[in-house]
Amino acid sequence: MPLYFFRIRNGRYSGASEQGIELPDHNAAWQELTSSCADMVGGICRKLGQDTQWEMELLDELRQPVFRICLVADSLAGSKPAAGKKRQPHSKRS
Rank of each mutant, 00 (worst) to 15 (best):
76 L>K: 13
30 W>Q: 11
11 G>Y: 01
22 E>S: 11
85 K>R: 14
60 D>S: 11
69 I>S: 03
90 H>P: 01
21 I>Q: 10
88 Q>M: 05
55 E>L: 13
68 R>Y: 03
41 V>C: 01
44 I>C: 01
75 S>A: 14
2 P>V: 02
86 K>A: 08
18 E>R: 12
57 E>C: 05
56 M>C: 12
78 G>K: 11
59 L>G: 05
25 D>G: 09
57 E>H: 05
72 V>E: 07
7 R>P: 03
51 D>S: 01
75 S>M: 08
42 G>C: 01
71 L>T: 04
7 R>Y: 05
7 R>E: 15
25 D>W: 04
50 Q>V: 02
90 H>I: 14
80 K>F: 08
61 E>L: 14
50 Q>F: 04
60 D>K: 13
86 K>F: 01
70 C>W: 00
89 P>H: 04
17 S>A: 15
28 A>W: 04
84 G>Q: 04
93 R>L: 11
92 K>V: 09
88 Q>E: 13
20 G>H: 02
48 L>N: 00
65 P>T: 06
26 H>C: 04
7 R>V: 03
39 D>A: 12
78 G>Q: 09
56 M>V: 09
18 E>K: 08
22 E>D: 12
18 E>H: 08
11 G>L: 01
92 K>W: 10
67 F>V: 05
46 R>V: 07
31 Q>V: 08
94 S>K: 11
73 A>G: 01
38 A>C: 06
78 G>R: 12
94 S>L: 09
44 I>S: 00
8 I>V: 15
31 Q>C: 09
6 F>E: 07
70 C>Q: 10
13 Y>D: 12
69 I>C: 03
52 T>F: 00
31 Q>D: 10
78 G>S: 14
15 G>W: 10
59 L>F: 07
64 Q>H: 14
53 Q>W: 03
30 W>P: 02
49 G>T: 04
47 K>Q: 03
18 E>G: 13
58 L>R: 02
63 R>W: 10
48 L>S: 00
77 A>C: 15
27 N>S: 13
14 S>R: 11
73 A>Y: 02
21 I>T: 08
42 G>A: 07
52 T>Q: 13
12 R>A: 12
44 I>R: 03
86 K>T: 11
89 P>M: 04
74 D>K: 13
27 N>F: 10
84 G>P: 04
86 K>V: 06
8 I>E: 12
13 Y>C: 02
82 A>S: 14
86 K>D: 11
29 A>N: 07
37 C>D: 04
94 S>C: 10
12 R>L: 05
24 P>R: 07
85 K>M: 14
75 S>I: 08
53 Q>S: 10
26 H>A: 10
21 I>A: 05
9 R>E: 13
87 R>Q: 08
65 P>F: 03
13 Y>V: 05
25 D>I: 03
5 F>P: 00
85 K>I: 03
78 G>Y: 09
48 L>E: 00
14 S>F: 03
31 Q>E: 10
83 A>F: 08
72 V>L: 13
4 Y>W: 11
52 T>D: 04
34 T>H: 07
20 G>K: 00
25 D>R: 06
78 G>D: 13
30 W>E: 13
51 D>Y: 00
12 R>C: 01
84 G>F: 07
71 L>N: 01
22 E>P: 02
20 G>R: 00
72 V>A: 06
13 Y>F: 08
43 G>S: 05
73 A>P: 00
76 L>N: 13
56 M>K: 03
76 L>G: 10
19 Q>F: 06
45 C>A: 07
5 F>N: 02
77 A>D: 15
59 L>S: 06
